[in-house]
Structure formats: C-alpha cells, structure tokens
Simulated assay, not measured.
Amino acid sequence: MPLVHIAMRAGKSAAYKQAIFDGLYRALHETFDVPEDDQFMVITEHDTASFRYGKSYLGIARSDELVFIQITANNTRTVEQKKALFRRAMELLGEAPGLRSEDVFVNLVEVTKENWSLGQGLAQYA
C-alpha cells in the first residue's frame, strides 16, 4: 500500500502527468508486488520560486525537469527490491514522459504496517 507524492515544476500537460502516474504504478507493481487498484498518488506543481534543488549534487547534472518522488511504503521490502524499484521507475519514466535519468529523484519512506488507516477509522494492516 504505497502512498506516492510527486513534486514537479508547474506547466506540464495532463498526458505528461498521467505518464508519470502510469510509470510509477507499473514500477511498483513489478518490483514491490503492489496489487491491482492499489494506486494512491498525488502530484503537486510548483512555480520557479517554490522549487529548489542542487543542480549538481553528487555529480548528477539535474535540470528544471526534475521530478521529486516520495514513496511511503511498508518496511517489508529487501534492498534488492528497493534497488529494482529505483531502476525500473527511472527506465519507465525515461520512456514516458521522457524524463532523463538525472531528473528522477526518488525517496523511499518506510513505515510499520500499523501506521496506516485506509478509511473507516481502521488500521487495516495492524
């Protein structure tokens, strides 16, 4: 049950944003075994004054096309699965909407299962 927050510069088309949603869901499905219909994602858009990043941190040449992706998920995945997710997300977002690998920034936040309520005031995974 990942929850995905995507932050990017404003001005992209609906098709561009949909390609990001689709690519990330596919990467999660393939590498984290996320089930069908388990799609909880949001995109926030920011103007130039509200979007800041290190253009060359760690020797990576980022551009204004940079997309921040923060995924909150259960702490049940292996290091190999996490690496596979990062790699697959970069590959798929490179295909559509055409992001450069340097502009795919992913942060994984892991939580324990009891930290979710998916509705009805219940802790469904506890």
Rank of each mutant, 00 (worst) to 15 (best):
M1C: 07
L3P: 01
L3K: 13
H5F: 03
I6E: 06
I6V: 15
I6A: 03
A7W: 01
A7E: 14
A7C: 08
A7K: 14
R9T: 04
R9S: 04
A10S: 11
G11F: 05
G11I: 08
K12Y: 10
K12H: 15
S13Q: 11
S13Y: 11
A14F: 09
A14G: 11
A15Q: 14
A15I: 02
Y16K: 06
K17W: 00
Q18V: 05
Q18P: 05
I20R: 05
I20M: 09
F21R: 02
D22C: 07
D22K: 12
L24R: 07
Y25M: 10
L28H: 05
L28N: 07
H29D: 02
H29A: 11
T31L: 06
F32E: 03
D33S: 13
V34K: 02
E36S: 09
D37M: 14
D37H: 14
D37W: 09
M41Y: 08
I43L: 04
I43V: 14
T44H: 13
E45D: 13
H46Q: 13
D47V: 13
S50H: 15
F51K: 04
F51L: 04
R52V: 05
Y53L: 11
Y53H: 09
G54E: 09
K55Q: 10
S56Q: 10
Y57A: 14
Y57E: 15
L58F: 14
I60L: 09
I60W: 05
R62M: 07
S63K: 09
S63P: 07
S63G: 12
D64Y: 07
L66M: 04
V67S: 11
V67K: 12
V67N: 11
I69Q: 04
I69F: 05
I71G: 07
N74Y: 04
T76G: 07
T76K: 13
R77W: 06
R77I: 03
T78S: 15
V79I: 12
V79Q: 13
E80I: 07
Q81C: 05
K82Q: 13
K83P: 00
K83C: 01
K83E: 10
L85R: 02
L85I: 02
F86E: 00
F86W: 03
R87I: 01
R87T: 06
R87Q: 12
R87V: 01
R87K: 15
R88S: 02
R88Y: 04
A89V: 03
A89E: 06
E91Q: 15
E91M: 08
E91L: 11
E95T: 07
E95C: 00
A96I: 02
P97C: 07
P97Q: 07
G98C: 12
G98T: 09
L99D: 00
L99R: 10
R100W: 01
S101G: 15
E102N: 10
E102P: 00
D103S: 02
D103E: 02
V104W: 08
F105N: 08
F105A: 04
L108S: 03
L108T: 02
V109Q: 07
V111N: 05
T112Y: 08
E114L: 06
N115W: 08
N115V: 00
W116F: 15
S117D: 12
L118G: 12
G119R: 11
Q120S: 12
G121N: 08
G121E: 09
L122K: 15
L122M: 11
L122R: 14
A123I: 00
Y125P: 00
Y125V: 00
